[in-house]
Amino acid sequence: MTWVLDNLSTILGAGWAHLWLALPAIVISFLVAVPIAYLANRYRWSRFTVLLAAALLYAIPSLPLFIVLPLVLGTPVRSTTNVIAALGLYGVALMVRYAADALDAVEPDTLLAATAMGYGATRRFLSVQLPLAGPALLAGVRVLSVSTVSLVPVSALLGVNSLGLLLTDGFQRGIVAEVLAGIVATVVVALAVDLGLVALGRLVLPWERARTARSSRKAPAPVEVAA
């Protein structure tokens, strides 16, 4: 505990750096994954191909990707761009599946009704399909954010500043408190981002809150079995 108090500014600085690696990656993943999922959903074969490619991309181990990516991008290994790009790639791979399922779950009749009312493809997507898929998309983004935040520490092995540095430094110097602080702080950042997303969800999807209040949360949350 004394270690934590003595090094509070180090922890806070690392936590801040951690957040600024994770947040851009989460935002980029979401913005890239949703259009890909929308296009992939058009045909059976395109959905199959895109989801398989995403699964394969997600299967790539993180440390090798952190090493290979700079050679492809031409960025230095220790640059934050490299880390954000790698995290973004994983994020897209994870989010595409959630987004494809979320968009697919919107009632086809509703979409047909929108078309019949004269909505064009873009407006129908933005003002009908996207809001209706909102809650499912939010659930996907929450999984995405937790996994991104907990993936960041691996970049510390390359020397990039984040809470992961507490883990490597603590291990090399044999300070258990530092490693523990790194783990706890990472979980705290993950929780904070998750709470932020829930708050954002309430703001953007106000009708959802009214509905869950009415249905008194009867449906249990699904158990996560990553396919």
């Binding site: 935040v149 907990s150 993936l151 691996v154 883990l167 603590g170 291990f171 490693v179 783990i183």
Partner: peptide
């Protein structure tokens, strides 16, 4: 899912 793997590995490494 929230636990950083590297943290678990290094923690047990010290232990």
């Amino acid at each position: 899912r929230a636990l950083p793997t590297l943290g678990v590995v290094t923690l047990f490494g010290l232990a």
